[in-house]
Design a protein around this nucleic acid. Structure first.
Length: 837
RNA sequence: GCCGAAGUGGUGGAAUUGGUAGACGCGCUGGCUUCAGGAGCCAGUGGGCGCAAGCUCGUGGGGGUUCGAGUCCCCCCUUCGGCACCA
C-alpha cells in the first residue's frame, strides 16, 4: 500500500468538502454585512482609483467578456489594496442609447421598464463574480440625477462656444432611422445594423473637438497608455503637415458681379477669384496640372461657365443623390470640367478647374491641386479625362525627366525635384519647406496643419437619451435651459419609435416641448433631439466618487483627492470613441476651471478579447459562454481564475471547457493542502525558498497584468509543496493563500479564517518577499560547446568562469566535445558557459 | 490599398528581453486506488533514429548578423484586428 492510499483514506479533510457555492455565498454575505468593500472616500490614505469601463446592461445578461474585463481590474484593485492603498472600485451602467431602444422596440417593452430589470440582473451576476465593488456608488446614466449633469456639461460647452448647431450632411441610417457619428459608420455601413448609410441634411448639434485636436494629440506623448490605443488615437486625429496654396482664377472679369458665392462658414475667401487648396506636397507645385473642387464646394456655381453649367449642375445633383457608400467605396473616378481656369503660381500657366467627388468637402479646404505625376488618385483621374501628367520628382536612379510616367511616382525618400524651375535638384524634404516659403513670400500660401478629426455630432433623433437642454424662442432665438431648471426630464411616452422623417419622437409630445421661454416668457419650444450616448460615458468617472451629491456634478474635494483615475482598464474597441471623447470633455472642464487636471486617466490598459474554441463568440454560432452556468458548476473563484489563466490579459485567450478543470483542481489542492497543513515543527527551507521566489514572481506579474504566468507560478509552487506526498507546513502555504486572494477571493477568505488568520485577508498586508530566503544555494548553468548545449552543471551562484569551466570539464559527457584547447570562453554569470574550440 | 498585432508540441499558452525552447494547464499513455464510472494519486509525454547511453532535427518559409537567434536585420507567405479617395 502506498503513501497516497494512506493519505486519502486517513484524510481528515475530504477535498469534496470544498463547496464553492457555500463558501462564496458566505463571504459575499460577510462582505456586504461588514462593508469590506466600502471605500473610505473622505479619509482613505493613498487613494487608488481602479476604474473599469462600465457595461451596457443588455437584456441577455452579463457577457463573459464583461466578466473577463472586470475580473482583471478587480485583481489589480485587490492587489493594490493589499499593497496598502485605499482602493475605489465602482461600477455603473451605460444604459441610454440605441442598443436599449432597439431592443425595447423589438420586444415591445418600454426601455424605462426594461432597463431597471436588466440592471437588476447585471447586479446579481456581478455580485456573484465576487468583485470588490463599492456598490454604494453604483450609477446609471439613465437616472435623472445623473443625466441632469450630462445636460449641465452640454451647457458648459455651449457657454464656451464649443457647442454649435449647423445644417450638415450627416450619416443617416435608413433602418435605425437616425443620424450616426462618422465613427459609427463602418465601411459605409451602420455599425449596428449593417444597413447602407445615406446622406441627409439636418440641423445638428456639434461639439468643437477639432479645436482640441492638437492638444489631444500632443498629450498622448506622455500618457501611460497601451501603445496600440495611443496609436489608434493618433491615426484617428490624423495630423498632416502641409501648405495651403491660393490659386487665382483666370479671367476674373468674367466672374465679377455674376458669381453668387455662398460664404456659409467663413472658411472661404470672399473673393471669388481665389481658390485655396490644402496639400502635403507643396514641393510638387510645378506638377499641378489642374485643380479639383468638391461638388459641394461653395465656389463651384460661381466658377462654372455658361457652357458647362448644365453638365456641372447634373453632376452635382448626381453626387447629392448618392449615398456615402457609393461615394466612398466606389473608387472609379468621375468628374466634370467647370469651364474655368486658374493660374499655377509656380509655372504661371493656366490650368483647368474640375469638379469631382473624389475630393471631399469635409477635409482640408474641399479643393485640391492635382499632381497626377505624383499622386495615384490624380493620376487615375488625369488618365480618364486625358489631362496632362508632368514629372517633377525623380528618385536617385537616372531617369529621363521628360519621359511619360507609367504610374504616379509617390516615393519621397531620396527624391529630388525636376522640371521645377529654381527648385530643380532640391531634395523633396527641403523643397517642401522652400516652396512653402516662396509661396508665403509671394502672398500665395502658408504652411498649415490639417487634422482628419471632425467635430463631434452629438444630436440623435431618438427617444432614449438625455434631452439636449436648449429652448427655441420665437423672440430670443436659441436659449440654453438655465442650470437651475435641470434636469430636462425625458418624458415617459408610449410611442417612442423613431420618426422616419428624421424628427425625434419627442417632437410628437406637444405637451412636453411647448414651454415658455426661460428668458422672456414668450412662446418657445424645446429642442427635441437627445444627446449621443458617448456624452453620457464621457464623464461618468467624475461622478462615481460624488454619486450621492445632489447640488453639483462632482464634489471639488473628493475630485481633487480621487482624480484623475489611477488605473483604467477596458476594451480596445473604445480606443478612439469613448477614450477620445472623455479626454476632450475633461480638457474642456479643465479649461472652464471645474477641475485641475486635463487628462482623465493616468494609466490605461486595453484588455484582450476572449474567443471560444478559436472562434469569436456569437449567438449565431451558439458558442456564447453564459457566466451563470459556469459559476454554478465550478464556482466564481474557479471561473475568475480560469478566465485569467487562459491567456495574457492584454491579448485575451481561447476559452475551452475542458481546461477549466485544471484550475479547479488547483483550488481543490489549495483547500486540502492548507487545511491539512501542520503547525508543529518548522517549514522546509527548500520549500520556503520556492515560496519566496513565487512571492517575487506573483508580485511582479500582477502589476504587469501577466495574470496567466502569476497563476502558473502559484501552481508550480503547489507542486513543490506537495512533491512526494509530503505534508505541508502552515508557514509554507498561508502566504500562498494571500497570493491567490486577488484571483480567488472567497476561498482565500475561507482558508485564511480556518487557518487562524485575523479578519479579512484583504485587510492584511501582502506577503513580503525576502531575497535572502529566495536565493538558491546552487544554480544550474548551461554549458555549450561551439554554441551547442551539451549539458548542465551545478555551481554556486557566484561561481567564477574558472570554477565553472573546471566543473564543466569534470563532466565527461561535456568534456568529450572539447577536442583541443579552447579558443575563447564566453561566460554569462548565472546563465551559461560557452566553450569555443 | 494603408496602419497595427501575431504565427512556438495533439492543444491553450511559457521563455529571465540575445543565453538550457516548450514553464503552467488541458489532452493523451502507463500504473495505483475503485464493484463500476468519475474523481484522486504516481510516472511519462516535441519529431526522427536507438534496447539504452545518446545522437540529430525543431519556434510560418528563405537568407543574414552572432560564440550563441523564438528573440535582432532583409525578403516572402498566412491569419486576425483597425482605417479606407484625408489630398
Amino acid at each position: 500500500m502506498t503513501d497516497s492510499t494512506d493519505r486519502n483514506a486517513a484524510s481528515p479533510v475530504d477535498p469534496a468538502a470544498y463547496d464553492p457555492a457555500v463558501v462564496e455565498r458566505k463571504w459575499q454575505d460577510h462582505w456586504e454585512a461588514r462593508g469590506t468593500n466600502h471605500t473610505d472616500l473622505g479619509g482613505g490614505a493613498s487613494p487608488f482609483y481602479a476604474l473599469m469601463m462600465f457595461p451596457y446592461p443588455s437584456a441577455e445578461g452579463l457577457h463573459v467578456g464583461n466578466l473577463f474585463a472586470f475580473t482583471g481590474n478587480d485583481i489589480y484593485g485587490r492587489f493594490q489594496r493589499l499593497q496598502g492603498h485605499t482602493v475605489f472600485e465602482p461600477l455603473g451602467y451605460d444604459a441610454f442609447g440605441i442598443h436599449s431602444e432597439n431592443f425595447a422596440l423589438k420586444v415591445g417593452v418600454h426601455p424605462a421598464d426594461l432597463i431597471p430589470k436588466n440592471i437588476d440582473n447585471f447586479r446579481r451576476q456581478l455580485k456573484r463574480g465576487g468583485l470588490m465593488v463599492d456598490w454604494r456608488h453604483e450609477l446609471s446614466t439613465t437616472d435623472p440625477s445623473y443625466y441632469k449633469w450630462t445636460q449641465w456639461i452640454f451647457l458648459q460647452l455651449y457657454k464656451r462656444g464649443l457647442a454649435y448647431k449647423k445644417r450638415a450632411a450627416v450619416n443617416w441610417c435608413p433602418n435605425d432611422k437616425t443620424v450616426l457619428a462618422n465613427e459609427q459608420v463602418i465601411a459605409g455601413e451602420c455599425e449596428r445594423c449593417g444597413a447602407k448609410v445615406e446622406q441627409r441634411f439636418l440641423e445638428q448639434w456639434f461639439f468643437r473637438i477639432t479645436d482640441y485636436a492638437g492638444r489631444l494629440l500632443a498629450n498622448l506623448d506622455w500618457l501611460d497608455w497601451s501603445e496600440s490605443t495611443k496609436l489608434a488615437q493618433r491615426n484617428w486625429i490624423g495630423r498632416s503637415d502641409g501648405a495651403e496654396i491660393t490659386f487665382r482664377v483666370q479671367d476674373l472679369e468674367e466672374f465679377t458681379g455674376t458669381a453668387t458665392i455662398g460664404i456659409a462658414t467663413g472658411e472661404f475667401s470672399a473673393n471669388p477669384i481665389e481658390i485655396r487648396v490644402f496639400t502635403t506636397r507643396p514641393d510638387t507645385l510645378f506638377g499641378a496640372t489642374y485643380l479639383v473642387l468638391a461638388p459641394e464646394h461653395p465656389l463651384v456655381d460661381g466658377l462654372t461657365t455658361d457652357a458647362q453649367r448644365d453638365a456641372v449642375g447634373e453632376y452635382k445633383a448626381a453626387t447629392a443623390k448618392q449615398d456615402i457608400v457609393s461615394r466612398k467605396v466606389n473608387k472609379e473616378k468621375t468628374g466634370v470640367f467647370s469651364g474655368a481656369f486658374a493660374i499655377n503660381p509656380a509655372t504661371q500657366q493656366p490650368i483647368p478647374i474640375w469638379v469631382a467627388d473624389y475630393v471631399l468637402m469635409e477635409y482640408g479646404t474641399g479643393a485640391i491641386m492635382a499632381v497626377p505625376g505624383h499622386d495615384e488618385r490624380d493620376f487615375e483621374f488625369a488618365t480618364v479625362f486625358d489631362l496632362p501628367i508632368v514629372r517633377v520628382v525623380a528618385g536617385p536612379e537616372i531617369v529621363d525627366s521628360h519621359a511619360p510616367l507609367e504610374v504616379a511616382y509617390t516615393e519621397t525618400d531620396g527624391g529630388r525635384l525636376v522640371n521645377s524651375g529654381e527648385f530643380t535638384g532640391m531634395p523633396v524634404a527641403d523643397a517642401k519647406r522652400a516652396v512653402s516659403d516662396w509661396l508665403a513670400a509671394h502672398g500665395q500660401g502658408r504652411g498649415v496643419v490639417n487634422y482628419r478629426l471632425h467635430d463631434w455630432c452629438i444630436s440623435r433623433q431618438r427617444y432614449w437619451g438625455p434631452p439636449i437642454p436648449i429652448v427655441y424662442c420665437e423672440k430670443c432665438g436659441t436659449v440654453p435651459v438655465p442650470e437651475s431648471d435641470l434636469p430636462v426630464e425625458l418624458p415617459y411616452v408610449e410611442d417612442f419609435r423613431p420618426g422616419d422623417d428624421g424628427v425625434s419622437p419627442l417632437a410628437r409630445v406637444e405637451s412636453w416641448y411647448r414651454i415658455a421661454c426661460p428668458s422672456c416668457g414668450g412662446t418657445a419650444r424645446r429642442e427635441t433631439d437627445v444627446s449621443d450616448t458617448f456624452l453620457d460615458s464621457a464623464w461618468y468617472f467624475l461622478r462615481y466618487p460624488s454619486s450621492d451629491v445632489d447640488d453639483e456634478p462632482f464634489d471639488p474635494t473628493l475630485t481633487r483627492k480621487w482624480l484623475p483615475v489611477t488605473s483604467y482598464i477596458g476594451g480596445n474597441e473604445h480606443a478612439v470613441l469613448h477614450l477620445l471623447y472623455s479626454r476632450f470633455i475633461t480638457m474642456v472642464l479643465h479649461d472652464a476651471g471645474n477641475i485641475d487636471f486635463e487628462e482623465p486617466y493616468r494609466r490605461f490598459r486595453a484588455h484582450g478579447t476572449i474567443v471560444r474554441d478559436g472562434a469569436k463568440m456569437s449567438k449565431s454560432r451558439g458558442n456564447v459562454v453564459n457566466p451563470d452556468e459556469y459559476v454554478e458548476k465550478w464556482g466564481a473563484d474557479t471561473f475568475r481564475t480560469y478566465l485569467m489563466f487562459l491567456g495574457p490579459y492584454e491579448e485575451g485567450g481561447d476559452f475551452r471547457d475542458q481546461s477549466i478543470a485544471g484550475v479547479r483542481r488547483f483550488l481543490d489542492k489549495l483547500w486540502t493542502t492548507v487545511l491539512e497543513s501542520s503547525t508543529v515543527g518548522a517549514a522546509d527551507p527548500q520549500v520556503m525558498r520556492k515560496l519566496h521566489q513565487t512571492i517575487k514572481k506573483v508580485s511582479e506579474d500582477i502589476p504587469a497584468l501577466s495574470y496567466n504566468t502569476a497563476i502558473a507560478a502559484m501552481m508550480e509552487f503547489m507542486n513543490v509543496v506537495r512533491r512526494g506526498n509530503r505534508d505541508a507546513h502552515r508557514d509554507e502555504v498561508l502566504p500562498l493563500v494571500q497570493l491567490a486572494a486577488p484571483f480567488a477571493p472567497h476561498i482565500a477568505e475561507e482558508l485564511w479564517e480556518r487557518a487562524g488568520g485575523n479578519g479579512s485577508v484583504f485587510d492584511v498586508r501582502w506577503p513580503a518577499y525576502d531575497p535572502a530566503l529566495a536565493a538558491d544555494e546552487l544554480i544550474t548553468l548551461a554549458v555549450q560547446v561551439n554554441g551547442k548545449t551539451r549539458g548542465t552543471i551545478q555551481v554556486a551562484p557566484d561561481a567564477t568562469q574558472e570554477i565553472a569551466f573546471a566543473a564543466a570539464m569534470a563532466e565527461a559527457s561535456i568534456a568529450k566535445f572539447v577536442t583541443g584547447p579552447p579558443k575563447k570562453i564566453i561566460f554569462v554569470p548565472r546563465r551559461l558557459l560557452n566553450v569555443v574550440a
